[in-house]
């Protein structure tokens, strides 16, 4: 299916070949740290290195993905894949993104009898989590850089962070609340400059 460019859309949609999409999403799928690790790699590939998407667009797609009743990164892969190459892009992006993890999960499941009662998984867990934390921190800093100055947007950042940590509100609800509050209080306001 070919990409349909909406006349109302102010930004022309960028494109990548299906092979390039596969490479980008395969690399992203190699990231540890769950969805945020994958997002960090996507940010590096699409925003920093290839300059295919602006930071803000990727952040918006991720926010919309958080509101979908599916895995967040699944929705992001579909959205970005569609932006870049239409329906075929969604399939390639999804397959490439889940392939590394899927193969690892199945291989480790086959090895269940050997690994279930040993220390290997604990060792991997103990060393991967801090590395994943590094990716999450870098990703949050890069995507949130324009917001890190005194502004109403920054208040939203802090409020969302606090509400998820304590009292532990559902992240999807917090983001939805941020969207509603943004529609009420951020409309027509100047955006903070990076």
């Amino acid at each position: 299916m070919s990409e349909v460019v909406e006349p109302q859309s102010p930004t022309p949609h960028p494109t990548l070949s299906l092979t390039q999409i596969f490479i980008v999403f395969f690399k992203a799928g190699c990231a540890f740290g769950g969805g945020l690790g994958v997002l960090g790699l996507l940010q590096e590939q699409l925003v920093t290195l290839r300059r295919i998407l602006p930071d803000k667009e990727l952040l918006t797609l991720w926010s919309i993905g958080r509101l979908m009743p599916s895995g967040t990164m699944t929705a992001v892969a579909v959205a970005v894949g569609y932006r870049l190459a239409g329906f075929a892009g969604t399939v390639v992006a999804l397959v490439a993104m889940i392939l590394p993890g899927f193969v690892c999960v199945v291989v480790l499941t086959i090895a269940y009898g050997y690994l279930a009662h040993g220390p290997v998984l604990d060792y991997i867990d103990a060393t991967l989590l801090p590395a994943a934390l590094g990716i999450i921190v870098v990703s949050a800093l890069r995507l949130g850089r324009p917001l890190m100055r005194l502004s109403l947007d920054f208040v939203f950042v802090v409020a969302a962070c606090v509400l998820v940590i304590w009292p532990g509100l559902n992240p999807a609800l917090v983001i939805l609340g941020g969207g509603v509050a943004g529609a009420l209080f951020l409309r027509g306001k100047n955006e903070p400059r990076p």
């Binding site: 994943a132 950042v157 951020l186």
Partner: peptide
């Protein structure tokens, strides 16, 4: 206008969520 405001709100709260996840991890 209100959609742009909503998107800014979604984006800002998403960044807050990333820091919260980072804190928890």
């Amino acid at each position: 206008g209100w959609v742009q405001g909503a998107i800014r709100g979604l984006g800002a709260s998403s960044v807050g969520l990333m820091f919260a996840v980072g804190f928890r991890v």
